[in-house]
């Protein structure tokens, strides 16, 4: 799907802060949306939590630094961090180039999937959210 010039991938869940989560089995892969990547522009550093760390839904779990500004990453789900995208350390620009595939951030083992998924937006709802915040 597309909203204006931004790619919105259909099979993902989104936060209002522009993170996405792709659930498979008990795990979720997490990243930021094409809108977030394009708005931040030129990402140069990413700080992520450590493997084994427990995170809560909507808690700040890291930062993304672009040339212009630093912004926080909010976790879409609660759980335990089980994997990080090691490539980002030397190639943070992967987030700009491929926010849904090569530019993923981390994976968590979900602890409260059923209760928490209703707090997230589907692709259609996320597009409505972008529209309502009058994003160009």
């Amino acid at each position: 799907m597309k909203y204006k010039k931004y790619e919105i991938q259909e099979d993902l869940l989104y936060t209002k802060e522009h993170e996405w989560a792709k659930v498979s089995g008990h795990n979720a892969r997490i990243g930021i949306s094409d809108y977030a990547a394009k708005t931040l522009n030129d990402i140069v550093y990413v700080t992520l939590p450590k493997i084994g760390q427990t995170v809560k839904q909507f808690e700040v779990i890291g930062t993304i630094e672009s040339v212009k500004a630093v912004s926080e990453i909010y976790s879409p789900f609660s759980g335990k961090v089980i994997q990080l995208n090691q490539q980002l350390e030397s190639h943070p620009e992967l987030i700009n180039k491929s926010p849904y595939v090569e530019g993923w951030l981390l994976e968590v083992e979900l602890s409260s999937y059923e209760q928490e998924k209703k707090n997230l937006l589907t692709a259609e709802e996320y597009i409505k959210h972008l529209e309502s915040t009058q994003i160009q």
């Binding site: 394009k38 708005t39 522009n41 030129d42 040339v67 212009k68 700009n96 160009q136």
Partner: peptide, 19 residues
């Protein structure tokens, strides 16, 4: 361009990438 506001003007922030 992606636009921004600066000193009371709406201006281009970048066209493709700042870098």
């Amino acid at each position: 361009a992606v636009m921004t506001s600066f000193a009371g003007f709406e201006l281009p922030l970048f066209y493709t990438s700042i870098i």
